[in-house]
Simulated assay, not measured.
Amino acid sequence: MKRRRQSARGGGPRNRLRLIGGRWRGRRLSFPESGGVRPSPDRVRETLFNWLGPELVGARVVDLFAGTGALGLEALSRGAASVLFVERDRHLAATLRGHLEALDAREGAVIERDVLAWLAGAPEQQFDLVMLDPPYDAGLHWPVLCALASGGWLSPEAQLYIEYRARAEAPALPEGWRWHRQSRAGEVGFGLAVPDHD
């Protein structure tokens, strides 16, 4: 999770995250303590990556509003072909670059840019999986989802992972998309959206 404060179940120190699966399982990483930035809780990540299963292996992933990078780093650990982290905060972006270097994760790259500004440009590649976890109350879910759906950023069978406040309604999806799976853990609501071919 990104710029909001909440308790972390199974957490530990507020500025540490633990990778929970794959080649870096158990690795602990630190991140700047600023603005209430939080990694997605272990339980949420475990559920998500169980959902994805072997489909993650070889996938091209983008982690938008990357924050701590917990989602994208977990994806790399579990076999994603590449992960692009988009994060506008320069301290967090620098920390992410440091983590990728420390892990020798050459499949990862960081773009220090505002997400909507970046999505307004021409896509250089298409992604198979999007991690979307913006600040809950910033009103960013809908414009980002629309930019993704209409901007040529997604492969034909792309999946969108979306986090939101559990006590709120799930974000509306653009035309041609549907919820495939949804769940909640504590204050976190989350789900996978897929193209609606029916």
Score class of each variant (00 low, 15 high):
73 L>K: 13
63 D>E: 07
42 D>H: 03
154 L>G: 02
103 L>P: 09
57 V>L: 06
171 P>N: 14
176 G>R: 11
128 D>L: 02
150 S>F: 03
98 G>L: 07
87 E>Q: 10
177 W>Y: 09
129 L>V: 04
76 L>A: 03
137 D>K: 14
74 E>P: 14
162 I>Y: 11
106 R>I: 05
91 H>C: 08
173 L>S: 05
163 E>C: 13
130 V>P: 00
138 A>Q: 08
188 V>R: 02
175 E>F: 08
159 Q>G: 05
5 R>G: 15
61 V>R: 00
178 R>I: 11
90 R>W: 15
61 V>G: 00
66 A>E: 07
94 A>K: 14
86 V>L: 11
61 V>S: 01
147 A>Y: 06
52 L>S: 10
101 E>T: 14
100 L>T: 12
90 R>F: 12
127 F>V: 09
129 L>F: 07
37 V>H: 11
148 L>Q: 02
160 L>M: 11
96 L>I: 13
87 E>P: 06
178 R>V: 11
196 D>W: 02
54 P>W: 06
191 G>Q: 05
171 P>K: 15
93 A>Y: 05
160 L>T: 04
94 A>Y: 07
169 E>L: 15
40 S>G: 00
190 F>A: 08
171 P>L: 14
123 P>N: 02
64 L>G: 06
2 K>G: 10
166 A>K: 05
88 R>I: 13
188 V>M: 03
39 P>S: 00
18 R>G: 11
189 G>H: 07
30 S>P: 01
